[in-house]
């Protein structure tokens, strides 16, 4: 190990600080939206459920985070029962792009 490495090795605290700042910024941002997704899921279920029969187990609400836009993807499986229009496929997909 060179002398340079010996001195360089000592300052690990700034690396710890930077790693924590990045990690916690991510984890804190995760806190709000995970609640948001829960609320969205419940409200979307209530609205869709008024018009078609749905199985709450077969609903997925996801948020894909991108640099410029994030995509909210709502996937609701609608069984082909009396009230659902026939021949339209099993799934209806809605994608919203928040500004």
């Amino acid at each position: 190990m060179s002398l340079f490495n010996f001195f360089k090795r000592r300052s690990s605290a700034p690396i710890a600080r930077d790693r924590l700042q990045i990690l916690l910024a991510y984890e804190r941002s995760g806190r709000g939206p995970s609640d948001l997704l829960f609320v969205l899921r419940e409200e979307i279920l209530a609205v869709v459920g008024r018009h078609v029969e749905i199985n709450p187990e077969r609903v997925s609400v996801q948020m894909d985070r991108g640099d410029k836009v994030s995509i909210l993807e709502v996937e609701i499986e609608v069984p082909n029962t009396v009230r659902a229009a026939p021949g339209r496929g099993r799934k209806r997909r809605a994608a919203l792009r928040p500004a």
Partner: peptide, 10 residues
């Protein structure tokens, strides 16, 4: 102070 531990300020 030697940069081996997070400081109070950090």
């Amino acid at each position: 102070a030697r940069g081996e531990m997070l400081t109070i300020e950090d």
